[in-house]
């Protein structure tokens, strides 16, 4: 049962991500992305990381993607009639590159001496929190500064009047 759910979710995550490649309308793409993100959240949960799973939903699906949709709605993008999705000029090289990337990553993953099944251990929010605010405190502070910088940048960029 557990395995079935895991692989099904993985397929959904990958399928939804693949759909973004071919859909025409950004809002539909965003929906597929949300589906992929939610599936990924479930994967996190199944792997035994409930905190990251919850944060994934709250942060990505709940905040970032809403922001995405908001921008799309403000821009009011409409699909330009019923045209087929044309492959952009010069698609061959990137496609080749992506294929090569897939191969190389597959080699990396399957070459690694990591076979064998996992023991399922759930690492709860308490452990993660203690790790974050203990060992990785400096990184947390730096991340806070980064977020502050982003905040300032956005405020600056979105000023009404510019000289």
């Amino acid at each position: 049962m557990y395995k079935l759910i895991f692989y099904l979710t993985a397929v959904i995550a990958i399928g939804a991500a693949g759909a973004i490649l071919i859909v025409r309308h950004p809002v539909h793409a965003a929906l597929y992305l949300i589906a992929s993100l939610l599936a990924l959240a479930l994967l996190f949960f199944l792997l035994g990381a409930p905190l990251v799973a919850a944060l994934q939903v709250i942060l990505y699906a709940g905040a970032i993607m809403v922001l995405f949709l908001f921008v799309m709605m403000v821009m009011d993008l409409r699909p330009a009639s019923n045209e087929r999705l044309a492959l952009p000029k010069g698609w061959r090289v990137p496609t080749l590159l992506v294929a090569a990337l897939a191969v190389e990553l597959a080699v990396v993953v399957f070459q690694a001496p990591l076979s064998g099944d996992e023991i399922w251990v759930s690492v709860g929010p308490k452990a993660v929190g203690q790790s974050l605010f203990g060992t990785y405190l400096i990184a947390v502070e730096v991340a806070a500064i980064l977020l502050l910088a982003a905040l300032v940048a956005v405020l600056y960029l979105s000023r009404r009047s510019r000289p």
Binding site: A41, L51, A54, L55, V57, G62
Partner: peptide, 8 residues
């Protein structure tokens, strides 16, 4: 967190 996630 689960409740917050779903409400969002």
């Amino acid at each position: 967190l689960y409740v917050l996630a779903l409400s969002s």
